[in-house]
Design a binder for these strands. Sequence first.
DNA 1: ATTATACTGGTCACAAATAATCATATACGA
DNA 2: TCGTATATGATTATTTGTGACCAGTATAAT
Lengths: 251, 251
Amino acid sequence: MFAEERRNKILQRIQSGEPLKVGAISAWLNISEATVRRDLQELRAMGLIHRTHGGAVAPQFPLELSFQDREVQHLREKEVIAAAAAQLVEDGETILLDAGTTTREIARRLRGRAITVATNSMDVASIFSDDAAVQVLLLGGIWRKSINSLVGPLTNSLLKQMRFDKCFLAANAIDCVHGVATHNLQEAETKQAMLAASRSVILAADHSKFGREDFARICGLAELSLLLTDSGVSPETLAELETCLEVQVAS
Amino acid sequence: MFAEERRNKILQRIQSGEPLKVGAISAWLNISEATVRRDLQELRAMGLIHRTHGGAVAPQFPLELSFQDREVQHLREKEVIAAAAAQLVEDGETILLDAGTTTREIARRLRGRAITVATNSMDVASIFSDDAAVQVLLLGGIWRKSINSLVGPLTNSLLKQMRFDKCFLAANAIDCVHGVATHNLQEAETKQAMLAASRSVILAADHSKFGREDFARICGLAELSLLLTDSGVSPETLAELETCLEVQVAS
DNA sequence: ATTATACTGGTCACAAATAATCATATACGA
DNA sequence: TCGTATATGATTATTTGTGACCAGTATAAT
C-alpha cells in the first residue's frame, strides 16, 4: 500500500466527521503509530485535518474562522497586572481604557464599580454590557474590525474635548531608549490623544513587551505616570526602567 | 474523547444561550472540574465565551447580537421597507443609519455594498462586523444599554461635524399635525442632529406608527425628504401624508 | 457585618502522546 | 551490483493532558 493511498483512506474517514485516534488508525491499517503520526502531520500541513492530542478530527471552518483565533498570550501575567490596575481605580473616577487584551482584563476587574469608563474598544465596552453600575462612554470613530476598536481622526478629535482621571494604556513595544511604540500609525495617534487627555497615564504591559521596538512611536517613558508590569521582568531591565519612570511590579 | 471535541461540545451549548455550571459540565462529560476550568479558560482566552463565577455564559457582544433576533413587531413590513430603502442607496455613498429595528433591517440589506455607514446603534454596527466592503463609522457617546445605542451631547456634537448623503431615520409616532416624535427626549435630540447632518432624510416607518403621538418631537413632516412605508397604510392616511411630503409605499 | 459555602488558580504527580533520533528495509537508477 | 534516497519501525526524552490536593478568595446566606 502506498503512502498516498493510506493518507486518502485516513482523510476520507476523518472528513466524514469521525474523530480518529492514532492507535486506531495504526491497528486498522497495520502500520506503526510513528507512520500514522507522520501521515497526520502531512495532512495537517495541508490543512485537511485538525490535529489533536491522540488523534485528529475534521477541521471546523464555520466556527474557527469567523472568530479571533489568536489566543491571548501571557494571560496569567495580564490577569495579575489587571488586578493591580483595578486597585488603582477609585470610585467616582472617570477612566479611559485603551484597546488591548490587557486593558480588557482590567475592564473585567472593574465591573460593578461606580465609575465612568471611556474606551475606543468594542471588546472593552462589551464587558460592561450587563453592568448597571459602570457608565460607558464609547468613543466614536472608524471601526477597525480586525482589532474591534475605533480609530481615526474623529476618535482623536473627540479625545481633545475630554479630560480623564486615569488612563490605562496598552502597547506592543517598550524600550528605555526608544520609548513606547505600537505597530500601527493610526493606533499610535489615538494612543497619543489618550495620553494627552488624561491626568494620570498608566501603561499596563507584561514583561514580553520590554526591550522590543516597533514601528509607530507613541511617547517616551518619561511621559507616563506609572508602568505596571508583572514579575517576569528581569532585574536588569527593571533597574533600567526605574531610572526613567515609576514602576510597579504586580504579583 | 479529545480535548477539541470536548471544547466544541461545551462551546455549542453555551453559544446556544444556555448558561453552564462547571459542575454540570464535569458530570455531563465525565471529566474533572479542573479540566472543565482549563477548557473554559481556553475558550475565554479565544473570546468565545464569557466566564462567570461557577460557570460560563455566551459573550454579550458581538456574537450574540448578530444571531439573536429579539421579537420584532411587524417584521414582514419592516423587511419590505428595508428592501426598498436599500435600493435607494448608491455605491460610494455615505449613509447615516438611526437606531431601531427597521434601520437594522436596512443594514442587513446593505451588507457587501461599497459604502460608508455611520450609526449610533451597536446593533446596526454589529451587522457589518464581518463585512469587509462596508466601512463602519460608529458615533461616540454614552452607551444606553437598554436600547444598545449611543446617545448624549457628545453624539450630537459629533454629528455637527459631518455631512451625509442619506439618512435613514426611525421614529415611534408620525402625525400630519404634530410631526415625527419618539419616546425619549435624549433620543429625539440625537435624531434632530442626524437630520441636520444629512442632505437627504428618509423616514422608514411601518404603518403602525401613523396617527400616533409621542412625547419627544423630532421634526415636522416637511423637513423630511421621503417617507418610506408599507402597503398597510390606509388610503385616507396616505392621501393626508402626501399633502405634506413625498411618500413611497414599498411592496 | 460575619460566617459558611463554593469556586478559583496554583502546584504536583502520573499517564499518555509526541517529536527526535537512529536503525533497518525497500525501491530506484547508474 | 552498488550506492543513494526514501519510507518505515523502534527507542527514548520531552511535552502535554489530566486529576487530586490545597490555600486563597469571591459569593451567598444569616
